[in-house]
Design a protein around this nucleic acid. Structure first.
Length: 614
RNA sequence: GCGUCUGUAGCUCAGUGGAUAGAGCGAUGGCCUCCGGAGCCAUGCGCGGAGGUUCGAUUCCUCUCAGACGCACCA
């Protein structure tokens, strides 16, 4: 289906052309003065200069044309109920109620509610998550996972072939650190016996708890013990060169860690198509280095191998990209470039999207430029980087535990669930009479399950409703509130709709829009709130497209919030179940079914679900 | 020092080359025997600053102030 603004703009373009003006002036936008009109076109003022006319004169000509066209139009083809030219040259429009209703009826019939799929199956790589092997997920990993998951779902919904890759940190110095720490703790292991020639054990010499403790302690040691650090660097290089005993340890680390990471991401309802890591770039690196040298891009500087990334039009000088350390080891940039080679070979994506902390912006600028300069990624393939801000505590500083430590993601999720659980109980207490009357008592088990679902929504919505690039304050109290611009409020609205539909069905109503015996149709709106709700619904397809085009999940948050508000206004003004005009009642049921579907589609791409009850 | 990002209501955040810049929370005062009170109304509070482009700038440009972050062998 065409977007409502397209339909209106097309009509306006026709009018501008007919009056002898260029169609580019005919752009129509949603009104910023809802008291005056629903849509507006400001093109007459822009056109005034070019045509040396008063803006109001142009606006009046166009309006006259549209009004005449309206009179000539078939009864079923009326688009506007109001068209007027207003000083200094605004063209104000209101939609015809029947037109509005027929647009919504059209949406309801389509599988994706009238959304076209601009993706056409194009492959897009989304690189997010970025967990490090052997290190527990902590709050610093939250944003990449949550934003990335949403971007992946948005793209998939729009028909792109989205490939999400967690891109694990599994090949860097931390591996050397762990190996050397392990040597100090358990020197008797066969991996450290240079003369050992047998098979390596299948069992890992550590469990996840021990592994998570080894890394921080090794990392701390490397900061004070210079020789330990050097040994770790040497071990990293040997691993990268394929030294069998270290590769065997590495495989153990991977197996133990990956199982834990999968469980953790699963709890967040975050999913990856690929569980690749930096190590997968390993096989491409020797060729990469030779090729960069062959092409004359890489040269030696202070012992390291670097690539200049200057481009025409640079106003400043950017530091070169290091592709090989002076000891010959690979580093971040090297593996990222190697990964691109692999992705081009295996998937040939039409677009890359990387989601990482905004402090890494320079790094991504560097590798994108190297990739384009060396021709590893086609010059017309967009490479986008979303740099997100820090999640801060209420003090405005990076979020910490009460004693100043790094908070684990698991802990944060548990805390949110507990807070939501408390709210459910508290709320149940307040409306006890109602819950009893409506037969909505909730078992302890259901309350716990519900808290899990609602808690995740609170967490994700709290994060996604902010612009990604900005730092934001994590406020448990606010995010878990059942009122205001929060995840739980959106879920509540959905639950409320379900409750109405359930009662309607219980009274013998039919909510199956496909049933032949159900002739219901959304009707032209009568009240203001109903009209506003319907207008809000028409924005759906445009919002989805824009949000993905701008990689801005917060626009979807904003939309579902506004839609939820519009629904609640409608709900307040219209008593659906006691409506005696059955045709109107059926229309309203259709309408709220559509609201439910749109809200559900919205939260689905945001990455969370609604419970049956709250 | 150089660079990037960010400055909007008491707080947390949206938003836009157009007409009167919006929400939520908090505050104050009201309302509602209504399909779930998780509601509604009213009041108060403002685009960091200075120039420029424009018919029109909070939005675009320049400068400036403030904060966060980044500036080669960590990831």
């Amino acid at each position: 289906m065409k977007k409502i603004l397209e339909l209106i703009s097309n009509r306006m373009e026709e009018a501008f052309l007919a009056c002898g003006y260029e169609e580019r002036y005919a752009k129509v936008v949603i009104s910023n003065r809802p008291d005056l009109c629903e849509y507006q076109c400001n093109g007459a003022m822009a056109a005034a200069k070019a045509y040396r006319k008063k803006p109001i004169a142009i606006a009046e000509e166009v309006v006259a044309y549209l009004k005449e066209a309206k009179e000539q139009a078939d009864k079923g083809n009326v688009m506007f109920s109001q068209i007027e030219a207003v000083m200094p040259g605004f063209i104000n429009l209101c939609l015809d109620g029947d037109f509005l209703a027929s647009y919504l009826n059209g949406m309801q019939k389509e599988e994706k509610l009238g959304l076209e799929e601009p993706g056409h199956g194009e492959t897009v790589i989304v690189d997010y998550g970025g967990a490090n092997v052997a290190k527990p997920l902590h709050v610093g990993h939250l944003r990449s996972a949550v934003i990335g998951e949403s971007i992946r779902r948005m793209g998939a919904y729009l028909g792109y072939h989205m490939i999400g890759d967690v891109h694990l940190g599994d090949w860097g110095l931390q591996m050397g650190l762990i190996i050397e720490e392990l040597r100090e703790r358990k020197p008797e292991l066969v991996y450290f016996d240079e003369n050992y020639e047998g098979e390596y054990p299948k069992e890992a010499p550590f469990d996840i708890g021990e592994l998570e403790e080894i890394y921080p302690s090794a990392s701390a040691k490397s900061k004070t013990d210079e020789s330990f650090k050097e040994r770790a660097q040497a071990a990293t290089l040997r691993l990268q060169e394929g030294y069998a005993p270290f590769v065997a340890i590495w495989k153990h680390i991977m197996a133990v860690s990956l199982a834990d990471l999968k469980r953790n991401y699963g709890n967040l309802d975050v999913h990856f198509d690929l569980w690749k890591g930096e190590s997968d770039a390993g096989p491409y690196i020797p060729w990469l280095i030779r090729d960069l040298q062959k092409k004359g891009l890489a040269y030696e500087s202070q012992g390291a191998l670097v690539v200049d990334i200057a481009m025409e039009g640079d106003s400043k000088e950017l530091p070169p990209c290091i592709v090989q350390k002076s000891d010959g080891a690979a580093l971040y940039a090297t593996t990222d470039l190697g990964t691109m080679l692999e992705r081009e070979k295996l998937y040939a994506p039409k677009r890359y999207i990387y989601i990482a902390d905004k402090r890494q912006e320079l790094h991504y600028t560097q590798i994108f430029r190297v990739a384009k300069k060396a021709g590893y990624v086609p010059s017309d393939t967009p490479m986008d980087y979303i740099g997100f801000g820090t999640m801060n505590g209420k003090d405005g500083k990076p979020f910490k535990t009460r004693d100043g430590g790094v908070m684990r993601l698991e802990q944060l999720i548990a805390d949110i669930e507990e807070a939501v659980y408390g709210r459910i109980h508290e709320n149940r207490g307040v409306v006890e009479e109602d819950t009893a009357r409506l037969g909505m008592e909730m078992s302890e088990e259901e309350a716990r399950d519900t808290a899990k679902i609602v808690g995740l929504a609170a967490l994700k919505y709290g994060d996604l409703s902010n612009q990604a690039a900005k730092d934001y304050v994590f406020d448990m109290e606010r995010f878990t509130s059942f009122t205001g611009n929060t995840g739980p409020y959106i879920l509540y609205t959905i639950v409320r709709i379900r409750s109405i539909l359930k009662n309607y069905q219980a009274a013998g109503g039919n909510v199956d829009i496909l049933a032949a015996e159900n002739p219901g149709r959304i009707l032209s709106p009568q009240g203001t709130a109903e009209r506003e709700l319907m207008l809000e619904l028409t924005r759906y397809n445009e919002v989805m497209e824009t949000a993905f085009a701008e990689l801005a999940p917060h626009k979807i948050c904003q939309y579902v919030y506004e839609l939820a508000n519009a629904f609640n206004g409608f709900y307040r003004d219209n008593k659906i179940l006691s409506q005696e005009d059955k045709v109107r009642q059926q229309g309203w049921i259709r309408l709220i079914l559509l609201v439910q579907d749109v809200l559900a589609a919205g939260i689905q791409v945001l990455g969370f679900d609604a419970p049956q009850r709250m």
